[in-house]
Computed example of a mutant assay.
Amino acid sequence: MSMVPESAPGLAITWAHRIITEHAEGRGCGQCRARWCPTAEWALWVVVTEHTPPPGEGGKKLVTTVARQVLTAHWPYGVDGCRPCGLPDCTRMQVAATWLEVVRDNYLPPAVQALRPTAVPTDDDLRRITGMD
């Protein structure tokens, strides 16, 4: 009786690096869904838990790009939790946020950025807005 391998031979980290690179460069894979990819999420988890970004100067940037993609896909809306899995404590979002925190990337998904003020109001602006001249 022969056993069929569950995946192509090789180390998980090697495959994770390939998947991260493909997704960061916008090529995606056969598992990509409309706005998220479980394969990219797995690869991000492997890279973050192994503390091993793809080799080369751009390795951290590739992981950061995929972390931003995962964070955007899983950002919660309403009380239902994140979009793809509906969990209030989404581990995929936690992994992505952890990476972004470690590399000191202050990324926020576009939907959240739209809610942020574009400029800090001055004292004069606040007096005018509140009518407290």
Rank of each mutant, 00 (worst) to 15 (best):
G30Y: 10
D105M: 12
T130D: 10
A96S: 07
I129R: 04
R68F: 02
P76W: 09
W42R: 03
I20V: 12
T118A: 15
D124W: 03
C90W: 01
I129K: 06
W45N: 03
Q113S: 14
R33K: 10
D89Q: 12
T39H: 07
V79S: 14
A97F: 06
D89N: 14
V103L: 13
E50K: 09
V66S: 05
R18E: 09
R104V: 15
A119T: 13
V47F: 07
A111T: 06
S7Q: 11
P54Q: 09
D89I: 08
A8I: 09
V103E: 12
M1H: 14
A24L: 05
G10Q: 08
R128F: 05
Q94Y: 07
V46A: 02
T64A: 12
H23S: 02
M1N: 11
R35C: 11
P53C: 03
C90V: 03
G131H: 02
I13H: 06
M93Y: 00
P55Y: 09
S2T: 13
A34R: 10
Y107I: 15
R27Y: 10
R68L: 02
D80A: 13
V48M: 06
P109D: 09
E22C: 00
E57A: 12
V46I: 11
V95G: 06
A34T: 12
R35V: 15
R116V: 10
G131M: 03
V79P: 08
D125K: 00
K60S: 10
M132T: 15
L62S: 00
N106M: 03
C85G: 03
R128V: 15
G56E: 05
L100N: 04
P110A: 13
T49C: 12
G58A: 15
R33E: 15
E22S: 04
